[in-house]
Every structure is written in structure tokens, then in C-alpha cells.
Amino acid sequence: MAVIGVYSVKGGVGKTTLAVDMAWRAAVLSRHSTLLWDLDPQGGAAFLLGMEERPGKRAASVFQRDGRPRDLISPSPYPGLSLLQSDESLRSLSVALARIGHRKRLANLTAALSAEYPRIIVDCPPVLNEISDQIMAAADVLIVPLPPSPLSVRALDAIRQEMLRSHHRHPPILPVLSMVDTRRKLHREVVSGFAAGWPVIPMASAIEQMAVRRKPIGAFAGWTEADYRLGKLWDAIEAKLRMREAIPA
């Protein structure tokens, strides 16, 4: 079982696109029963999977003492992939978590779901508060998409400092350069400079088409460079998770 958090302190960096893509690959290509848990109130995960918005505002209720996440899980159009949708109730989740005072509530919930879902992908909101604390406590690995900019170093440092401040034992961080256009000099300098060796996801029309077609890229453009890059990223993550799972507890 592994919990993969897709997290950024900044919106608009391809976080939800990456979360949906990894969940699709985990279920369809790696054949794991996979849960995509959307904690971002914008609800982009359901949209990109071609699913309709769930009526009601109950997403935050699963964090209550008597919360029942299984009641809110829906099958996606793809075999092996289920979704726990977000809704506007998550906008006040940080306040509710502070009131509950249970810093490992998300970790306990994902552990309870692990028998059914060996892979749980969490699409995280771009915040540094009680929600990010919960995610850092629950995740086995944290994927951090970042734009090809010198400011990305500061964003990554902020995440690392928060993790060290709040968590003595924290998940490994995998930074990923997102929306890279190698025609731009600055982007090339970032790729060959401080971000050398990081996975690179290109700026590509096929990725943009995910929001138009409402499908993961592998479902309609599996022959493209963007799909190849996303596939290499997932293969690397999956290889690390298999190694981790092979180590006796």
C-alpha cells in the first residue's frame, strides 16, 4: 500500500493534471486498485475524468469521528480507478481539522482504505496549514510539481522547512518540473541548472487537451512525447514503491 501526495504551495502548476494522470496509470497500466482522493475544493479531478459533480457538500464530513469515506467513493470510467470527489465543504476543512485536533486523521483514513486500494493518490490543495500537515503525515512520497523558474527553489525550500518544523519523520519529496518549454532560454537554464536531474513534463498541447476531452492523456494521446514523459515519471515512482514494499516491516 502506498499513499502518494501531489502537492504544491502554488496553484496553476499542473498539480491536478499530474494527480489524475498518475492515478490512471496506477489503475490501468500498473493494474492496482487505485483511489484518487481529491482534497482540492476546485474539484478538478472529477472534471478531468469526465465525471459529473456529486450533489451535496459532504467531502469534509469523512474527517469527523463518524465519517465514512467509502460512502462517498465512486467508480470512474476507467477499470480499477475510483474517486473520492471534493466539494465546497473542503474550503473550511483546515478549520475543522484544527478543531478536531487529530494530526493523523488522514493517515488513519488512508490506512483503513489500504486493504481495498494499494495505491491512493491524493490531489492536495495549494496551502500550508492543517491540511498540509495531514498530508505530510499520511504520504509515503510527496510529488511536488514546480514551474521552470528560480522562484521554484524558494517554494521547494518552504515545503522542506515546513516538513522539518512539523514532522520529525516525513515522506521523501520528488520535485517535478512542469510546463517546460525548451524554446525559452530561462526554461533551458533551469533544466540544466538547479533542477538538473528532476523529471521534466513539457508544455504540450496534448496535456492541455486533457481539459477539453476530459480524459487522461494516455486514453487519447498515448503516442506523444508528453505521454512518454509522464509514463517515465510514473515508472520511476512505481519502481521506488515496489522497492519500499519489498523491505520487511
Results as ranks from 00 to 15, higher is better:
residue 136 M to K: 00
residue 178 S to W: 03
residue 21 D to L: 03
residue 247 I to P: 00
residue 149 S to I: 04
residue 93 L to T: 07
residue 220 F to H: 10
residue 34 T to R: 04
residue 68 R to A: 15
residue 231 G to Q: 04
residue 82 S to I: 00
residue 154 R to F: 13
residue 244 R to W: 11
residue 73 I to R: 02
residue 15 K to S: 10
residue 164 L to E: 13
residue 185 K to W: 02
residue 14 G to P: 05
residue 183 R to C: 08
residue 115 A to P: 01
residue 247 I to G: 00
residue 76 S to I: 04
residue 21 D to A: 11
residue 208 E to V: 12
residue 128 L to R: 08
residue 134 Q to E: 14
residue 171 P to D: 04
residue 25 R to C: 09
residue 198 W to F: 15
residue 245 E to S: 15
residue 148 P to V: 09
residue 25 R to V: 11
residue 42 Q to D: 09
residue 194 F to A: 11
residue 33 S to L: 06
residue 119 R to G: 03
residue 30 S to I: 00
residue 213 R to A: 14
residue 80 G to T: 04
residue 11 G to W: 09
residue 5 G to K: 05
residue 156 L to Y: 11
residue 16 T to M: 06
residue 52 E to Y: 01
residue 135 I to W: 01
residue 239 A to V: 06
residue 36 L to T: 03
residue 6 V to D: 06
residue 15 K to I: 10
residue 44 G to S: 12
residue 154 R to I: 15
residue 76 S to P: 04
residue 4 I to G: 06
residue 98 A to I: 02
residue 192 S to N: 12
residue 164 L to F: 01
residue 51 M to I: 11
residue 244 R to L: 14
residue 151 L to Y: 14
residue 42 Q to S: 06
residue 213 R to W: 04
residue 243 M to E: 15
residue 49 L to F: 03
residue 246 A to G: 06
residue 212 V to G: 00
residue 110 T to C: 07
residue 108 N to V: 08
residue 173 I to D: 03
residue 60 A to I: 07
residue 227 D to R: 07
residue 118 P to F: 10
residue 106 L to Y: 02
residue 115 A to V: 12
residue 167 H to M: 08
residue 73 I to K: 02
residue 248 P to N: 09
residue 215 K to P: 00
residue 247 I to H: 07
residue 210 M to D: 00
residue 105 R to T: 12
residue 75 P to W: 04
residue 132 S to F: 05
residue 4 I to S: 07
residue 83 L to N: 02
residue 43 G to Q: 02
residue 94 S to W: 12
residue 248 P to L: 10
residue 117 Y to S: 04
residue 176 V to W: 01
residue 82 S to P: 00
residue 212 V to E: 05
residue 110 T to F: 04
residue 224 T to P: 00
residue 28 V to K: 08
residue 145 P to E: 09
residue 170 H to Y: 15
residue 19 A to N: 05
residue 133 D to C: 06
residue 222 G to Q: 02
residue 112 A to H: 00
residue 24 W to F: 14
residue 8 S to A: 15
residue 247 I to A: 07
residue 35 L to K: 01
residue 79 P to V: 12
residue 39 L to N: 03
residue 57 K to Q: 15
residue 233 L to F: 10
residue 20 V to C: 06
residue 203 M to A: 14
residue 102 H to R: 15
residue 141 V to L: 14
residue 114 S to P: 01
residue 135 I to K: 01
residue 185 K to S: 14
residue 87 D to A: 13
residue 220 F to C: 05
residue 29 L to P: 00
residue 120 I to G: 06
residue 21 D to R: 05
residue 214 R to G: 01
residue 150 P to F: 10
residue 134 Q to F: 04
residue 47 F to N: 03
residue 12 G to D: 09
residue 35 L to H: 01
residue 190 V to H: 02
residue 154 R to T: 14
residue 23 A to G: 14
residue 20 V to N: 03
residue 22 M to L: 15
residue 44 G to F: 09
residue 243 M to F: 02
residue 149 S to C: 07
residue 39 L to S: 05
residue 56 G to Y: 07
residue 87 D to I: 12
residue 175 P to W: 10
residue 209 Q to G: 00
residue 211 A to G: 10
residue 177 L to V: 11
residue 214 R to S: 12
residue 208 E to G: 09
residue 169 R to N: 12
residue 72 L to A: 14
residue 122 V to F: 07
residue 221 A to Y: 01
residue 40 D to Q: 08
residue 172 P to R: 05
